[in-house]
Design a protein around this nucleic acid. Structure first.
Lengths: 126, 126
DNA sequence: GTTGCATAACTAATTTATTCGTTGTATATT
DNA sequence: AATATACAACGAATAAATTAGTTATGCAAC
């Protein structure tokens, strides 16, 4: 999956949030100082070329919406990250952050609960 | 912490791996097609300006080594990622990947073990 | 000392990304 | 129908990143 540049990612984050929108609506979601209308319009068209969004035309105006979901993109991004920084091991990554105390006890307990359920589910399947 | 560009990250990954090295040694680690010596030299000097590496001079030649550890950089990167894609919740991220089956049962079991230990450690401290 | 080689520093060239002005066209307004 | 408005498309201008040529300096070999 192609990478998003900074500017492109910012637009995607907005589109993921609002689900669909006209350039004008995307522009509104930008923090000050807002870019020019044309800047957003250009970025959106680049995103379309890259296959991240598509549009529905209402006469002359276009309503854009994501084709690549935030989940799919984040999956691909984290995969690259885990590969580059934790030799492709999720376990290494998670345990690193657990030991670094970047994950609170509460979070760890919640994660463990989810994992227990998942492990159970996988076992049942067999 | 500043971000690394693609080219910069590639050099850092090499430096993190070899611990320290002269430009020539860094160059050797590149896959074909290797960039020009000067390209690597420039990137390393940019990394120095950005504070990611420093050097020890042996006469006219410089031996470069990382100032920012791979751990520190990955921590900062993942923090940004979790913030942007999982509203700053580690738990959301990990459980998303657990449910996506990007984490194997074996990995989950190992992670749970580590978390149990960590939770225990945290509790003892109080 | 002179020549040749290795290297860092500097700088130019190229590529990629970002930003936005201009233009043309469709639609709405009068 | 004429004018105004809104928008997408285009493309120019700028900025940032990447790549590598050129230059200057130090050191080694002779």
């Amino acid at each position: 999956m192609r990478e998003l540049t900074r500017a492109e990612e910012e637009v995607m984050q907005i589109l993921w949030k609002i689900k669909k929108g006209f350039v004008k609506e995307i522009l509104e979601r930008f923090d000050e100082p807002k870019p020019a209308y044309n800047t957003v319009s250009t970025i959106v068209r680049i995103l379309q070329d890259k296959g991240f969004v598509t549009h529905k035309a209402y006469g002359r105006t276009h309503e854009y919406y994501p084709v690549v979901s935030k989940n799919d993109y984040s999956k691909s991004q984290l995969k690259t990250f885990v590969n580059d920084y934790f030799s492709n091991s999720f376990e290494k990554m998670v345990s690193f952050f657990a030991k670094e105390k970047s994950i609170s006890v509460k979070e760890m307990e919640d994660i463990m609960k989810i994992m227990e359920d998942e492990v159970e589910k996988q076992k049942v399947k067999r």
